[in-house]
Design a protein around this nucleic acid. Structure first.
Length: 588
RNA sequence: GGGGGCGUGGUGUAGUUGGUUUAACAUAUCGGCCUGUCAAGCCGAAGAUCGCGGGUUCAAGUCCCGUCGCUCCCGCCA
């Protein structure tokens, strides 16, 4: 027997109890006479005392312990003597006086501290991930992740959902991200693809009559990494039949609210979650995934500066662009150097430059990169429109709508942080709906779905598909939280003719469509219920709830930026005969 | 594919206008002392060709070029 108790549960009421504990030596303190160790298991720490006057051989063994040794001890729980309790430890009222010890396994000195929160080189953490995972931070994150997923399963089961697994080996389609491919041994020259999401399969489950499906689904996308993107990640994927968009939103909102309030210590800023339509969110924040924990909203200046005489502004407007700005409150103290850095900042998002104005006060005039080109009343209007008060820094970008919005949205995030407007104890959810169904792809000269090609158009917009597709809206919904896209979904098309129309619109000819999606089209003809769903990024959700900056902190075995596993050295070359089996010859 | 940052004993950092000597500090490790510690303490020891390769120079941790790794960002991610 290894344990009668765990190391985190012993309290004063266990006084006098004989216990067996097993775990890792978190810290070892040899006082020459007495030896103390803090014994650690997943549940916590207990102090063990070895006294040479009581158990000489046991004490002798204890002097040979080192951190991270795996041991088993037997002993008696005692109240700690007067004044020696440790109020910082949950088990600090007691200690275990050991009378027997077994060293189950010694341990080398770890390459970094297990028992201290200390920054460690990322490559080292990943190489020794099993040691990194031993640390409190990671154990806490993994536990939180477990609780989030457990909550999801319980909640959805109660709501009548059933969990169904879908294939990992499935079909490659040219839509969306790059696929991870798996060559077939049995079918020379053919490949499986790892799913980017179980999209088609969950729709087929609706056609199959399951009505309410969910899955904790691993998804794979072979694209370059970011802090919130890994090549494989986990979604809560769900789909419902006989629902409209509001049903999905309401259910998701109840689920998210429950998770945040039950398993995290974060507070939800807005309940119910605000719903923005796409034009509104772009107008106010310049981006479809705004962090609404703070204001600093974008303002459009087109009307004020259309014929102002300053070519940077007026030409932009004449060419169909936008002049937009934000007010960086109280940043009028910024030096030229600091403003130049902001210019550099917006340039990385394609902006050609950054116009700025520091609001003056009475006898102190405005300082600005552009007012010398403008009439004073136009300057006053700009200041007024951006609600400039003395000491504010107004930042303006004139460019295409896309670039101006994006650059200012990123500036807004930056100033949200700089001005301390971002409360990390808060989660601010919002919905974004009424997306355009399709967006014009200038490079390919065709329409691309803004969500995916199974998204249903708004009923009243169906005629636009033939006349002016840009005017059609989709029954799409995104859930945004603290500036991250946390979930996305839609009501799906459930009629073959509309689905074919969309294929046609995005430039898939009927033969291609049949080749790639024939099974879907055919299925639609066998009694398809109206249906829709949503998929939530679990890694991102847990990251936000854990207060972590990166999803790899909430994934047990994440990949590095270059999509490698540094612990096992993945990916690896394979044996020649394996390639032969798969009918693959490598280019030299 | 492109741009930025980082890489110095086991770990975390300092040192980078080229030369201050023996590359510093903390911590960990090893040895000694220590019966109430819990960030244990005290004494001592060992431990680094400064990621790797090349170059400039009388002289390179420091400058240049290349390369590898990690990381952030742009592109990409329906």
């Amino acid at each position: 027997m290894y344990k009668t108790h765990n190391c985190g549960e012993l309290r004063a009421e266990h006084d006098g109890k004989k216990v067996i504990l097993s775990g890792w030596v978190n810290q070892w303190r040899d006082h020459g006479g007495l030896v103390f160790i803090d014994l650690r298991d997943r549940w916590g720490l207990s102090q063990i005392v070895f006294n040479p006057e009581h158990e000489a051989t046991c004490h002798e063994t204890a002097t040979r312990l080192r951190n991270e040794y795996v041991i088993k001890i037997e002993g008696i729980v005692h109240h700690r003597p007067e004044g020696l309790a440790n109020p910082n430890m949950p088990t600090g009222a007691i200690e275990v006086i050991a009378h027997a010890i077994e060293i189950i396994n010694p341990a080398k000195t770890p390459p970094f501290y297990i028992n201290k929160e200390d920054t460690v080189d990322e490559a080292l953490r990943l190489k020794y991930r099993y040691l990194d995972l031993r640390r409190q931070r990671m154990q806490r994150n993994m536990l939180l992740r477990h609780n989030v997923i457990l909550y999801m399963r319980n909640f959805l089961a109660k709501e009548g959902f059933i969990e169904v697994e879908t294939p990992i080996l499935f079909k490659s389609t040219p839509e969306g991200a790059r696929d991870y491919l798996v060559p077939s041994r049995v079918h020379p020259g053919k490949f499986y693809a790892l799913p980017q999401s179980p999209q088609q399969l969950k729709q087929l489950l609706m056609i199959a009559g399951y009505e309410r499906y969910f899955q904790i689904a691993r998804c794979f996308r072979d694209e370059d990494q970011r802090g919130d993107r890994q090549p494989e990640f986990t979604q809560l994927d769900l789909e419902m039949s006989f629902v409209d968009q509001d049903d999905i939103l309401t259910l998701t909102e109840r689920l998210m609210t429950g998770i945040v309030e039950d398993v995290s210590d974060k507070k939800i800023l807005h309940k119910p979650f605000p719903r923005f339509n796409y034009p509104e969110v772009m107008e106010r924040f310049g981006i479809d995934k705004p962090d609404i924990r703070f204001g600093l909203e974008l303002k459009t200046l087109n009307d004020l500066v259309a014929d102002c005489g300053f070519k940077v502004f007026s030409n932009t407007i004449n060419n169909g662009g936008m002049v937009r700005g934000i007010n960086a409150k109280r940043c009028g103290t910024y030096s030229r150097k600091k403003i130049d850095e902001l210019t550099k900042f917006v340039r990385q998002f394609g902006a050609k430059g950054l116009a700025w104005l520091i609001v003056g006060d009475g006898d102190k005039p405005h300082r600005s990169s552009f007012i010398k080109f403008l009439k004073p009343e136009i300057v006053d209007n700009i200041v007024k429109h951006l609600e400039g008060e003395p000491g504010d820094l107004l930042l303006i970008v004139a460019d295409t709508a896309e670039i101006a919005n994006n650059a200012l949205a990123k500036l807004r995030d930056e100033f949200g942080k700089r001005l301390g407007l971002v409360d990390d104890d808060v989660v601010a959810f919002c919905w974004v709906i009424d997306f355009p169904l399709v967006m014009w792809n200038e490079d390919e000269k065709r329409w691309d779905p803004s969500h995916h090609l199974f998204t249903a158009p708004m009923d009243e917009d169906i005629t636009f598909l033939d006349t002016d597709p840009s005017k059609a809206h989709g029954k799409q919904h995104d859930l945004v939280c603290n500036g991250y896209e946390l979930a996305g979904g839609s009501i799906r098309i459930h009629q073959r003719d509309i689905q074919e129309k969309i294929f046609d619109l995005i430039g898939l000819d009927i033969e291609e469509a049949k080749d790639q999606f024939g099974h879907m089209l055919e299925a639609f003809e066998y009694g398809t219920p109206p249906h829709g769903g949503i998929a939530s990024g679990i890694d991102r959700l847990v990251m936000i709830l854990a207060g972590e900056p990166n999803i790899s902190e909430v994934i047990a075995f994440p990949k590095s930026q270059s999509a490698a596993d540094l612990m096992a050295g993945v990916p690896t070359p394979v044996m020649e005969h394996q390639l032969n089996d798969l009918h693959i010859r490598l280019q030299t």
